[in-house]
Each structure stands twice: as structure tokens, then as C-alpha cells.
Design a protein around this nucleic acid. Structure first.
Lengths: 185, 185
DNA sequence: CAATATCTATTTATCGATAGATAGGTGTGC
DNA sequence: GCACACCTATCTATCGATAAATAGATATTG
């Protein structure tokens, strides 16, 4: 039906599985039953497509995070929901965070794609910072920023390693260890 | 001089910068001043080269870790050295752990390459486990295993995110936060 | 209302670049 | 003279990208 949406849907999953470099117009076309030239009608270049994917991914994250409660009373559940979002990618055929996998290829990304990928990190870290400051009102701004960055890094790392093992249980184990150690609130 | 060594040297750095997929026989050849066909003389296929790279990388890690003191008395320095090894990759032109970046492409790796990449994680986690058990003799084996996996995941994640930012300071900040939170011993 | 024009979405066919891989020749040193 | 190391030349496959044609919907105009 909506070819443009179909393209974005399969392209997103392909990047999450194989990275931006391995994303092929011909493979996308085959998957949705059109010719590769049609992809160029909707996305002039591969860079346009990559940037659109990353932009939407970040927007979705913004919406998801915006809907979560950041009050201390809901902390437990909120953290659980946040972690579950990253866990879901692994459950979905051992995929990775779109921006996490693209960071690994950052030097080969078109500029506009890299900008959008960076924004995903920003959005996540900023949100975590707010969460931390709500839970620990006395925490200095700088410390909250460092801690937020550390939490995000740790979760991305857990996803990367768990994916390498092809086992969601690895992700769960690592997250549990993060919590035990006191890294996660 | 030693073409085989030259190939492995530049190939290693290319993978650390751009990933396995982007590794090109022609680029390697150009970099060391031979023709691409010569690479095939030393490494029949790209898979052979990739496996050799990952195998040596893991061997080097084994040797490096084997030379570190794991007694509690040297804990501080040992942890510092371990972290510094990952930090060094970032300092070296914003590169990543060879196996860390390859994990992101795991689904597209030849089987023998993937096996070697997995071994790097094993070696690191096993060593961290021994370190933890030495420092905390009372720690249950299972807990040490989880904690070791968490530390490794967190460090790989810190490297990934810091690389995305193109800033070693991000790595340092995150590692400091890990230590503050009590994740690192 | 009908004829014409334009726009949208897609196709076919092809381009140049680059990928890994291979067959067979060349030179060098033991 | 033969094994090693490298070369030239080439093959097939795939990549992103583009030009030109087309079918169908929509809008414009006489």
C-alpha cells in the first residue's frame, strides 16, 4: 500500500540486523515487491533514507520517553519500561538499537545520518538525567549527567554483547548485575 | 618487508575503524603497496583474513591479561591497565575494539570469524571473573560470572558511545561513573 | 462533458564503481 | 629447476544511481 512506509519498515529492520553499510536498495525492493529504482523515487539517495530512519527512530524514542513517568514514585516501573525497550530489539530476531549499530559505522555515515544518530544519544541521556535528578534532587547536575551517560553506555553495551551471544538471557543477567552494583537507580 | 604482517596490521586498523564489511582487499593492497591478488596469496579468502585477525587479537588479549597481576594488592593498578587497553583504541584515531565492532556485524560474519570473535568475549569475561574472585573470595561463582559479564559489557558500551562522540573524555567520564556506582572493583 | 495537460508512482534498462576471487605469467633465490 | 612471492588481467556479482518510458490518477481548460 504505502510504499514509502514499507521501505522504511523493512529498511529499519535490515539496519538493525546488518548495519547501515549492508543496507541494499535491491534487497529492500525485493522484500516489498517493487524495483530498486522505486526506492530512489521516495528517497533520492541512500543517505536520505538513512537520515529518515534515524530521525524517525529518535522521534519514536522521544515519544516513548515522553510518555513515561519520571516521578520517584514510579521509578521502578519506569526503569523497567526503559530497559524493556532495549530488550525488545533483541527479542525481535536478535536485532540491535538502530543508532547503536550505526554508531559502530559512524565514520562511513553521511553527515546528515550521523547527526540524527547523535541525537538519539542526546535524547536518551537527557531523559535519564531528568529521571536521576527527580529521584535524587540533591545530586549535582554534573554528576547526574555523567551517571546518565554511564547508564546509557552500559545498556547499549549490554545489548551489543547479548546480541553477540544471541541470547536475551545475557542481557537480563547483565542488567541485573548493573542493578546490584548500583549503577541503575 | 613481511607482507603478511603488513596485511594484518593495516587490515586490523581498517576493521577497527570501519568494520569487517567495509574491509577491502584493494584498499589493503593500496595501503601496503602491493596488488590485491597478492592478498589472496597470503589469505585465500576474506574469511581467512578475518579469522586470522580475530584470532590474533584474542591471543594478544590473552597475553596481555596473563601478564597482569590479579592479586588483590595490585587491584587498583590492574583495573587501570585493563581500562587503559580499551582506552588506547579510542586514542588510536578513534578506533574500536576489533571484536566489539565485529559483534555488531555478527550475522554477516563467516562462521570461523564469528567463533574467534566470541572467544574474545570469553577470554575477557573469564579473566574478569578470576580477578573478582581473587578480590572477593567469598563471592559466589555465579555472581562473579554475572558481574564479570556486566563489567565487560559496560566497558564495550562505553567505548562504543565514546567513539560515537569522537571524544575520549566521554569514555573517561563513563568509566569514572562506573567506578562511583560500584560496578568496577 | 470531453479533451488535454500535468502529476504520481512505478517500470525497464543501463551506467560506472567496486567487491572478492581466480587463472596464469614473471622474477628471484636457494 | 623448483618453490615462493608477487604480478597482470580478468570474471562475476553487486552496489547506488540515473534516464527514459509508461500507466493511471488528477486537474485544467475549451
Amino acid at each position: 500500500m504505502d510504499t514509502r512506509e514499507n521501505i522504511m519498515h523493512v529498511a529499519k529492520e535490515m539496519v538493525q540486523s546488518h548495519g547501515y553499510n549492508a543496507l541494499s536498495f535491491r534487497e529492500i525492493a525485493k522484500a516489498i515487491g517493487v524495483k530498486s529504482a522505486s526506492i530512489h523515487y521516495h528517497f533520492p539517495t541512500k543517505g536520505h533514507l538513512g537520515a529518515a530512519l534515524a530521525a524517525r527512530y529518535t522521534e519514536d524514542a522521544e515519544n516513548f520517553l515522553g510518555a513515561l513517568q519520571v516521578e520517584p514514585a514510579h521509578l521502578r516501573e519506569t526503569v523497567k519500561s526503559y530497559i524493556a525497550a532495549f530488550r525488545a530489539a533483541l527479542l525481535n530476531d536478535n536485532r540491535m538499537c538502530l543508532c547503536g549499530i550505526m554508531v559502530a559505522e559512524r565514520d562511513d555515515l553521511p553527515d546528515n545520518v550521523r547527526v540524527e544518530v547523535d541525537r538519539f544519544t542526546d535524547v536518551n541521556v537527557k531523559w535519564l538525567e531528568i529521571l536521576l535528578r527527580n529521584v535524587h534532587p540533591q545530586m549535582p547536575r554534573k554528576e547526574a549527567a555523567s551517571r546518565a551517560l554511564a547508564i546509557f553506555s552500559a545498556i547499549e553495551g549490554a545489548q551489543l554483547i547479548a546480541r553477540g551471544r544471541g541470547d536475551v538471557k545475557v542481557f537480563d543477567t547483565v542488567v541485573a548485575a548493573y542493578t546490584d552494583a548500583g549503577l541503575l537507580p
